[in-house]
Design a protein around this nucleic acid. Sequence first.
DNA 1: CAAGTTTCGTTTCAATTCAAAACGAAACAT
DNA 2: ATGTTTCGTTTTGAATTGAAACGAAACTTG
Lengths: 167, 167
Amino acid sequence: MTNKHTQPCSVAAALNVFGDAWTLRIVLEAFYGSTRFEEFRRATGVAKNILADRLKQLTEDEVLERRGIGKAGQRYAYVLTQKGEALSTVLLAIIQWSDHWVYGEGSEPVILIRRESGERVPELIPRWDDGTPIDRASIAPSPGPGANDAIRKRFSAPAKKNAKKKR
Amino acid sequence: MTNKHTQPCSVAAALNVFGDAWTLRIVLEAFYGSTRFEEFRRATGVAKNILADRLKQLTEDEVLERRGIGKAGQRYAYVLTQKGEALSTVLLAIIQWSDHWVYGEGSEPVILIRRESGERVPELIPRWDDGTPIDRASIAPSPGPGANDAIRKRFSAPAKKNAKKKR
DNA sequence: CAAGTTTCGTTTCAATTCAAAACGAAACAT
DNA sequence: ATGTTTCGTTTTGAATTGAAACGAAACTTG
């Protein structure tokens, strides 16, 4: 990514961390249990310079922690931090979308099962507290506690149709 | 993205659709209600050539549908398809991760509320059918119905520690 | 209906980023 | 002690990016 996103937007901020072609692949492999440079490289097929860069970036962003292992501590294990583990919800959502809409049911390359029982990971469905599924029409973006003027201007007014901009 | 991911992996396939710096921003704005080229451009700040390219790609990938509007149909509205709307779960997961781990609670730039009631969108928490939260340790990747030999080799055996590779 | 403005791009170009391969040094295994 | 693996860095050509200029059709206005 050449320039980072600068706008105050949760998605923009997240994309500054993992908005590229490889970062989430690497985080996924960390979930699958990879910890070492060469494990990540083999599992994903990423070029080594790119991997080195992404691991460094993920470490700076505190998604991974780099631990010296081996006698002289010149071998490293990259392990998920809490912040990194919290990306599991994002990964599950992506996997489920991809399985449904790209591969299609019955063609999933990998499935996730519960170790103890073998059951599949259930589908993640956003719901209101009363159990109603959340659909796009029912939600409205609204300025949050960290909003600035631009956001307030954009989202406070309920999007009038013919609001004048000037004059 | 220069080369697309080719490995059989749900996350890789998804990243082939939206694994770059701008695509998810654009999809988010579609969720917020943008439909027109200039709306997307203003909301995100993306360069026009990039936007034109991403809209074309999203249309080819059937995340957006491009509808001719206006008299002669030479103005366009880009609207989410079902496949695109299904990305809401991914977007919600990303927004919640970012609000918690990047902005921090109390500093969210935008919040999502229910139009009818004003209640916040509840947190998305992956759970097993019995209600237990899903944590990384309890899940295991396993070959799916569309697995190939490489995947079966990698995930069938429960990751022996000192398995010989050669000889 | 004529003139000005907005929309929706395409083209060009310099700068950046990417991927592949070569290279290297320390660590580990035998 | 030797060979192999790990974990990178450097180099190089190719691809991508972002900014700005350009253009044509569509709307708006009075």
